[in-house]
Design a protein around this nucleic acid. Structure first.
Lengths: 152, 152
DNA sequence: CTGATATCATTTGCATACGAACGATCTCCG
DNA sequence: CGGAGATCGTTCGTATGCAAATGATATCAG
């Protein structure tokens, strides 16, 4: 091993923490980008959170499903989806009923009010998506979506 | 209102929610990608959360700072950063002291244990970054980082 | 100097988010 | 049939994350 390599080792031993740049780490940037999106969402849709909206939109997609099933579709675990559905039910946007045949399952469906709310909000949601992506060109937006899709 | 307008209304009324695909919205994908990263982080670093680690790493970067200042550097509001710092202090990883001259400010600094912990964790954190990006080529990873950076 | 304003930290309330433990129910195998 | 194991939902505890209100202190304009 040459003296040059030893020098290199010394220089590289310290950097453990030195050349670790937090703001270049995927986790940090992911968290910040998500925060910005949530802020834009809240500014555009004041009375519904992104998870609540996601649950409504998914319900419109697939129709009646069980609570846990819906949770899987919108990426929420059982404990989380329960709270979201409870709050949507509290507002009359979804209705709950027991599954006939399987007494464990709690079926969730959109109410009239839920569908009406969703229809009214979807255009707003499109604007929110657009605003979140506004710093990017359409091409960059497509690339970002594609790459994020790969790391989900 | 003309008959044409009525027809247009009919055609546009339906699609409202129909062609809105949740899993292609930036917010949804951002949320899922973030969730996956947090899971990878928890698997690799069990006893520290990403925000806690971020605070430690930033403190090592900038040295002693006020609590709020640190919060800005790691993208946490005042209420959030307080909880994070409290828990780090509870573990002896950071130390708190009052600023001389400005009695409002709460200065935060790394303890010996905090620096030792950070030094031990940084290599692990690098692996976590790597694993999160493992579905991507290095070129794609760089692109993703760049695009996410633009929408922060 | 003093009062209006700004900043820093704290607290409360609400909403995700997840692990772990639990009871109820269902399924499937022997 | 009957019990082992899986699935569904619920609850609890902990940790972000943010808005809003509050008290203490600083700063700045007049």
């Amino acid at each position: 091993m040459s003296g040059e390599e030893n020098l290199l080792k010394l220089v590289e031993a310290e950097p453990e923490a030195a050349d670790y740049r937090l703001q270049e780490q995927i986790g940090f940037v992911l968290r910040k980008a998500h925060q910005r999106h949530v802020a834009i969402f809240a500014a555009g849709i004041a009375d519904l959170t992104p998870p609540q909206f996601a649950a409504l939109a998914k319900l419109a997609d697939v129709g009646e499903t069980s609570q846990n099933q819906l949770g899987q579709l919108v990426a929420m675990d059982a404990a989380t989806v329960k709270g979201v559905i409870d709050r949507l039910k509290g507002r009359g946007l979804v209705a709950l009923s027991r599954h006939e045949g399987d007494k464990r399952r709690l079926m969730v469906s959109l109410t009239e009010a839920g569908r009406a709310a969703l229809d009214a909000l979807v255009p707003q949601a499109r604007r929110i998506t657009q605003e979140t992506l506004s710093p990017l060109t359409p091409r960059e937006s497509a690339t970002l979506l594609r790459l994020l899709g790969k790391i989900c």
